[in-house]
Design a protein around this nucleic acid. Structure first.
Length: 481
RNA sequence: GGAGAGAUGGCUGAGUGGUUUAAGGCGCACGCCUGGAAAGCGUGAUUACCCAAAAGGUAACGGGGGUUCGAAUCCCCCUCUCUCCGCCA
């Protein structure tokens, strides 16, 4: 069987978007899964349109710091916005007229004055035609406007370092030191094969390259880590554990800003297996997607905030275009486990909460005795939805490189707008909360750093004390059964 | 998977084409009354958009479309919930 046959079988049930047959439900003219009008389910905006109107120059300036050229979209956005408001005002005036005349008709009918009523009907009918046209125009304009808005990333916070790429990310701090060995440390692939923690060959046999088969103590270590992480964040850091669906609707992906930009990175469930108005279903790329959306389209009470959620889930990523870059081993895989942290907080608390979240993720590495540093992503390297992001990179001695195991972001109200999540203040005002997400932490790379850091001269792995009660072992040895 | 019944405001619940400007009840807030309460009486209370603001206007009765001068109400599609049957870990 060649590689293409293998891949087509893998994707028989799970296909990337756009490559499957049209669904029966949709007929042969199935709409593009990403038509703008399919992406929005309400009128909330990604960037605050009022802010864009009132301070276009400021918005453009912030966007420009990302170096992606999005600031060029603002002028067109404003053009659509102005046109929309003009037409909307016209339509509403006409509707007001029609409502008034309709009432008069009702009154005439009640008085059995049919001829007069008929005359007014003709008048109203004509107004109605104009309204229909205006409504159509406005809808078109909103479609154009939203198509642009959906592709504009969040504005970076003022405190974020200006830069173009990962090389410009400032290191904020580090903890511990690079582990020293009086022997040549092995990399995780060798360790896994020797200790039979992962069966790379059979994982690939099952699902293709980039899929892992954890075996025996490897599987147990993975499970122990999940359990340890959830326990830590729930009991010590005050998070409420949730366990979300792993298959989620398109609207959730749009809500957190994964779509439309990263649609190629998601595994789509077979076309036709969609959820009606929720649209096409996808395997989650991160638990952030379902968990941040838990309260979408709700109005929370201020006293419900802050909300802290943590969730374990596997994460599925197509990693299209990433082939060949560190693909061997566990560093970049199509499916990995992660414990995710999500916070929904009042805007004034957003940045304090971000620092706390990073500290919560750092605790993991400290307790496991792993050297790491925290970097701030510069404007040019930040994710689409984020206003400010810290990455935690753990040292992997076998790789001789730092691996990203956590990315903690404050998305401010960017996601809340997309999903129309608000909270009501004590004074009765509705506001968008800040939504934060952070890995607490990603498992596959944590696994790598753990076994590479704690490997012993005899090839065994010493288990850190914090993990021993979960794994029920102090060491993993070659002859461990 | 099959059959049926539903979805109305904070909750409950009326409303089968025109003072619905969504009744009534419960709960809520404020006021009157009271020594204080209860009861009673009165007032208020959704969301979004347009408008610099105010005034005003428009829209929303699960979601979308249609009929009509006019739709919570009639028609079509979808989603969700409940009941029964079937299947299933």
């Amino acid at each position: 069987m060649d590689i293409f046959e293998k891949r087509s079988l893998i994707r028989a049930a799970i296909t990337r978007r756009g490559h499957g047959p049209p669904s029966l439900n949709h007929g042969t003219n199935a709409p593009s899964p990403l038509a703008p009008d399919q992406l929005l389910f309400h009128n909330a905006l990604m960037l605050d349109m009022r802010l864009v109107r009132e301070n276009a120059a400021g918005v453009q300036e912030r966007l420009a710091t990302r170096g992606a050229g999005d600031e060029g979209k603002i002028d067109e956005l404003l053009k659509w916005d102005e046109k929309r408001r003009t037409l909307l005002a016209q339509a509403e005036t006409l509707k007001s007229q029609r409502n008034r005349v309709s009432k008069e008709i009702g009154a005439l009918m009640a008085q059995k004055k049919a001829p007069e009523a008929e005359a007014k009907k003709a008048e109203t009918r004509q107004i109605g035609d104009q309204i229909t046209q205006l409504d159509k125009d406005v809808a078109e304009i909103e479609k154009s406007r939203d198509a642009i808005l959906l592709t504009i990333p969040n504005l970076p916070h003022e405190s974020v370092a200006i830069g173009r790429s990962a090389e410009d990310n400032p290191v904020m701090r580090h903890w511990g030191e690079k582990a020293q060995f009086d022997f040549e440390p092995k990399n995780h692939i060798d360790i896994c094969e020797r200790l039979k923690l992962i069966d790379f060959a059979r994982g690939a046999k099952l699902s293709g390259s980039g899929f892992l088969l954890y075996t025996n103590w490897g599987a147990r270590l993975e499970r122990a880590l999940i359990q340890y992480l959830l326990d830590l964040h729930t009991t010590s850091h005050g998070f409420t554990e949730v366990s979300p669906p792993y298959i989620i609707g398109r609207h959730c992906m749009v809500g957190v800003g994964q779509f439309p930009k990263f649609v190629d990175q998601a595994y789509a469930v077979q076309e036709g297996m969609d959820a009606g108005t929720m649209g096409q279903l996808y395997l989650l790329p991160t638990a952030e997607a379902p968990v941040a959306n838990i309260h979408r389209e709700e109005i929370l009470r201020e006293d419900q905030l802050p909300i802290y959620y943590c969730a374990y889930s596997p994460c599925f990523r197509a990693e299209a275009g990433a082939a060949g870059v560190g693909t061997r081993g566990m560093i970049r895989v199509h499916q990995f486990d992660k414990v995710e942290l999500i916070k929904i907080v009042m805007p004034e608390d957003g940045y304090v909460e971000l620092e706390k979240m990073v500290a919560n993720a750092e605790t993991v590495l400290q307790q496991l005795g792993l050297h790491y540093h925290v970097i701030m992503l510069c404007t040019g390297d930040m994710g689409f939805a984020s206003a400010k992001t810290y990455d935690i990179e753990v040292w992997a001695p076998g790789q001789k490189q730092y691996l990203e195991v956590s990315s903690c972001s404050n998305c401010e109200d960017f996601q809340a707008r997309r999903m129309n999540l608000r909270y009501k203040t004590a004074t009765g005002e509705n506001r968008f909360p800040h939504i934060l997400n952070g890995s607490g932490t990603a498992l596959a790379r944590l696994f790598v750093a753990l076994i590479e850091t704690h490997q012993q001269p005899d090839g065994s792995i010493k288990i850190p004390a914090a993990l021993q009660t979960y794994l029920r072992a102090e060491v993993i040895k070659v002859d461990s059964e």
